[in-house]
């Protein structure tokens, strides 16, 4: 995996930077880090952050400071599908504890771990703004809501099938 944006990603990079006035390109840092994370395998190795720093003409430390502040950036490798299960108040009173325990059992991993096959990572997160659809989790860019044990099973199968289809 080369740590440089391809043409398509470069076009997107330029589009993101164009939103901000000249000389304020640092403002694009958060969106560009999202782009980098999506482009480089779901996480941000140091080389990726250094690359972003060079593109935006800022010091690498400015990127590290930001990347470590926000919870959506992964600074360690993660599985292909990251189950980010909400555990805050409204989800908790709607039964998120049971869902978390069930996912742990089904995937045989603890929060923060990745399955041996590199498919799934389980992450416990704080409120994702879907309290009316609790319990819920985020997988990639989409929300999976009103979770039940059956739904969790179906979701796991769905992602397994996706991988099979890709291969």
């Amino acid at each position: 995996m080369s740590l440089e944006f391809n043409n398509e990603q470069m076009t997107e990079f330029n589009r993101l930077v164009a939103h901000y006035p000249e000389g304020k390109q640092k403002s694009a840092l958060l969106p560009v880090l999202h782009l980098a994370q999506d482009s480089f395998g779901g996480w941000l190795p140091t080389e990726a952050m250094d690359y972003v720093a060079s593109l935006l003409q800022i010091q690498p430390i400015e990127v590290y400071e930001v990347a470590t502040f926000y919870s959506m950036y992964n600074l360690k490798p993660v599985g292909k599908f990251v189950f980010e299960v909400c555990q805050t108040g409204p989800c908790m009173i709607s039964g998120s504890d049971n869902i978390i325990a069930y996912i742990q059992k089904q995937l045989a991993i603890k929060p923060g771990e990745t399955t041996k096959d590199g498919m799934f990572t389980l992450k416990l997160v704080e409120c994702l703004g879907a309290c009316g659809y609790a319990p819920m989790m985020q997988v990639g860019k989409i929300y999976r809501e009103h979770l039940t044990k059956e739904k969790v099973d179906a979701i796991i199968v769905e992602y397994r099938m996706q991988i099979v289809a890709l291969n």
Binding site: Q59, P60, I61, Y64, E65, T68, F69
Partner: peptide, 17 residues
């Protein structure tokens, strides 16, 4: 600048990454 504040909240630290 080569060092800064990394991480946030009660885990925030001075470091160079």
């Amino acid at each position: 600048r080569e060092h800064g504040i990394l991480d946030r909240g009660d885990h925030a630290e001075i470091a160079t990454h």
